[in-house]
Computed example of a mutant assay.
Amino acid sequence: MKVLDIGCGSGHSLLYMGERSAGELWGIDLSKIQIETARDLLTDVAAPVQLFESPMEKDPGLPSNYFDLVYSIFALGWTTDLQATIQNIHRYLKQGGTFVFSWEHPLHSRARLADGQLHFDKSYHKEGPYDHEAWHAPAIMQQYKVSTYINTLIDHGFHIEKIIEDVAITEEDREKHENRWYSYEKATKLPTTLIIKCRKA
């Protein structure tokens, strides 16, 4: 398979794909440091590697109708233009190709857990950029409703196959994340993650 990682970061997911016999490994990331880190990490993989330093809203010269699989692991919410990003991904994929992405569930950042109760201090309906409070430095991310993701995919020619909001957590994770942004207690009340799998129709 020819695979493309949108927001590839340090390249570990591409390494995972390479270790499972992917035919070609492609990645795009906004950060020059992350691209350099990924390039070093992927030096010894058997598959050819192509990495691009670019925002996901822009096409850095990737081939059209080429990839069997495009995926994005906790990166899509950094886009400043969801429409352009989804349009690019649709163009990159072969007919029948798969796009899978994960991102923080849009409800999760709208609610705060205090004394075992959820308090909604931000509107779920308000979309656009916001400074994510879980980061110590300013981190401007985009808030979109679940319906916005779904409708954007449909509008750009994707057939949605699966949506996952379930939480699966080990006892070790439960202890590690106690009193953190992704806490076990909050996860029992709200989904932490949204995962959507779709296919280019």
Rank of each mutant, 00 (worst) to 15 (best):
R112W: 10
L82Q: 05
I154N: 08
R199A: 11
D173A: 14
C8A: 00
I150F: 13
G116Q: 05
L15S: 02
R112Y: 10
H108D: 14
L69V: 11
L25M: 06
V146Y: 02
V100L: 07
K2S: 07
K186C: 08
R112C: 09
L82D: 05
Q142S: 13
T98I: 15
I160V: 15
Y66E: 15
L41H: 00
P138R: 12
Y130T: 05
L194T: 10
I163T: 07
G23S: 15
I169M: 05
A114Q: 11
E133G: 12
R110L: 04
D59E: 12
H156T: 03
H132M: 10
F101R: 01
V146A: 01
I164T: 00
R39L: 09
E53I: 07
R199P: 05
S183V: 04
D131W: 06
H90L: 00
E24Q: 12
G11K: 02
H125I: 13
H156Y: 08
I163E: 02
L113A: 14
S31T: 06
H177W: 15
Y182N: 12
L41C: 02
A22I: 07
A38K: 04
I196Q: 00
T170F: 06
G77L: 09
G9N: 03
T152N: 08
L62G: 03
W181P: 14
S183E: 01
F158E: 07
K197P: 01
M1N: 04
A46V: 14
I164H: 00
K122N: 11
E36W: 02
I163N: 02
T188R: 13
D40I: 13
C8L: 00
G116M: 05
L190Y: 09
N151H: 07
F67Q: 03
A187D: 06
R174Q: 12
E185T: 00
I33K: 11
Q95V: 07
Y124F: 10
R110W: 02
M141W: 14
I73W: 11
L69I: 10
E171Y: 13
R180C: 14
P191L: 09
K58T: 15
P60N: 11
S21Y: 11
E133P: 13
T170W: 03
Q34M: 11
K58H: 15
N65M: 00
S64T: 11
K176R: 15
G27Q: 01
F74Q: 08
G96N: 07
R199L: 05
Q143P: 09
T192I: 13
G157L: 04
K162F: 13
Y184I: 11
K58S: 15
Q117C: 14
R20W: 12
I154C: 10
D166E: 12
R110Q: 12
E57A: 08
L153T: 09
H177A: 15
L93R: 02
V45W: 03
F158V: 09
P48K: 02
R199G: 06
K189V: 03
K200S: 12
E161H: 11
